[in-house]
Amino acid sequence: MKWLSNIFMKRSNWSIPYFIFLLIFVVLPLVLIFLYAFQDADGNFTLKNFSKFISNPEAANTFVYSIGVAIVTTVLCILLGYPAAYILSNSELCRSKVTVVLFILPMWINILVRTLATVALFDFMRLPLGEGALIFGMVYNFLPFMIYPIYNTMQKMDHSYIEAAQDLGASPMKVFTKVVAPLSMPGVMSGVMMVFMPTISTFAIAELLTMNNIKLFGTTIQENINNGMWNYGAALSLIMLVIIFATNLFSDDEDQAANEGII
């Protein structure tokens, strides 16, 4: 028993259970995606899953279309969210912290409930469901995720830079383009990650918003997994992982600071 209490005494060893947990439930599953992607149903090595994706126009089109939707959503979120974050972080324009909480609040409501609410809104206003509803729903779902990181970086921004620029005679436009915009870039990048990634990987939402007329890549993956095409589904997941990894390369460590203290 002595050795056991020795292990317990050294507090750095307390990370061991979690380390093992992470290996089993995070690392191993990701390795499995990789393995399944390069296997056929009998477990032999194959590249067929990937060639099937490239040669299958439906899956490839869905993929391109999903990236398009994700880009449009992200751009709209920046256009709508950046001014909002700017106003929220500016104490002259917005004094109340409650407004900030109001913007973050929708992040904590079940995404399906939010989506159904959007469908309800379109029904109520007698608007047709379709591409417009899809984009509106996505922006509606993910706008808070854009506003929050930008707001966070702007909050931490050193305001003496802005004052210095003003004192040195920069016009308000110059102050914005030369000081505020570059300093808030990490927040924007992090917002892009938080909007682009979920948009490209959601499923179910697009079906609900378009009455099953438009399918996104996430849905394609889900359908394949549900229909027992695990290998093909794993290959599609791997493609998505690569895209996400590529987007991740654009952002750097700085961005993580922007997401701190999300509650």
Binding site: L22, V26, P29, I200, M240, L241
Partner: peptide
């Protein structure tokens, strides 16, 4: 780094990878 992976992974990837496990 390991601790960050589940937070960076999209839900669908977490779901599918655990399903395969």
């Amino acid at each position: 780094t390991l601790n960050n992976i589940p937070m960076l992974n999209p839900d669908i990837i977490t779901g599918i990878s655990l399903f395969l496990l």
